[in-house]
Amino acid sequence: MKTVLFESISKIIIIGVFAYAVGFTFENIWLMDEFNRGLANGEILLVDVKFNLWPFIVSILLMLLQIILSVKLKPRKRADILLKFGEFQEADERELIITNKATRASHVTFTLAVMIAMLIMVLSTNYIYLYPAFSIYLFASTIVASSIAYAIAWCIEYNK
């Protein structure tokens, strides 16, 4: 159970940091695009574009740390362990059933979260112009919701 919790929490942290990095970059690209549109119309728009590689570096380091710790936490230390990253735990038949139920809960949560995200995108077009990276954070939140649902379902089924 500690492997599932570790991998779920670490995935949520990595997705959050990576979404921040991509969102920050996308907002700067959006600003440059606004500058180009203004320049095409004969206007000069002053934009403040900053690129920062630290969020990408931190997310890559977190991914590497998660991979190393994930291998160390796995009960089996065989060569095929490199092919089995992720929260899935299938040591015995009971854990296989638990994994199936948790995967189903994660799939249902992801499907509902994507539908809700689509509705939010349709109903919040004015936020897209105010916060250009809104869609990136919304997509990351669907992945996070799916990971949280997997971890909760796995822990509930494990403790039955």
Rank of each mutant, 00 (worst) to 15 (best):
K2Y: 08
T3K: 04
T3G: 02
F6I: 01
E7G: 02
I9V: 14
I12V: 08
I12A: 03
I13T: 11
G16F: 07
G16V: 02
F18G: 12
A19V: 02
T25L: 11
F26P: 01
E27W: 01
I29E: 07
D33F: 15
E34H: 12
E34Q: 15
N36K: 06
N36D: 05
N36S: 04
N41Q: 08
L45G: 01
V47P: 14
F51L: 08
W54S: 08
F56L: 05
V58Q: 06
L62F: 01
L64E: 02
L64S: 05
Q66L: 02
L69H: 00
S70G: 14
V71M: 09
K72R: 06
K74Q: 12
P75M: 03
R76E: 13
K77S: 03
A79G: 08
A79Q: 05
I81F: 11
I81N: 11
F85D: 04
A91S: 13
A91R: 09
R94V: 09
E95D: 12
E95P: 14
L96V: 10
I98H: 02
I98Y: 04
I98L: 02
N100W: 06
N100C: 07
T103D: 07
T103N: 10
T103V: 09
R104I: 11
A105H: 09
S106F: 08
T109E: 07
I116R: 10
I116M: 14
I116N: 08
M118W: 00
I120Y: 00
L123R: 05
Y127T: 05
I128Q: 13
Y129V: 00
Y131A: 14
P132R: 01
A133N: 01
A133E: 12
F134M: 14
Y137E: 07
Y137V: 05
L138R: 04
A140D: 07
I143G: 09
V144K: 03
A145T: 03
S146F: 05
S146Q: 12
S146C: 12
I148G: 12
Y150F: 15
C155I: 13
C155P: 10
C155Y: 14
I156Y: 15
E157D: 15
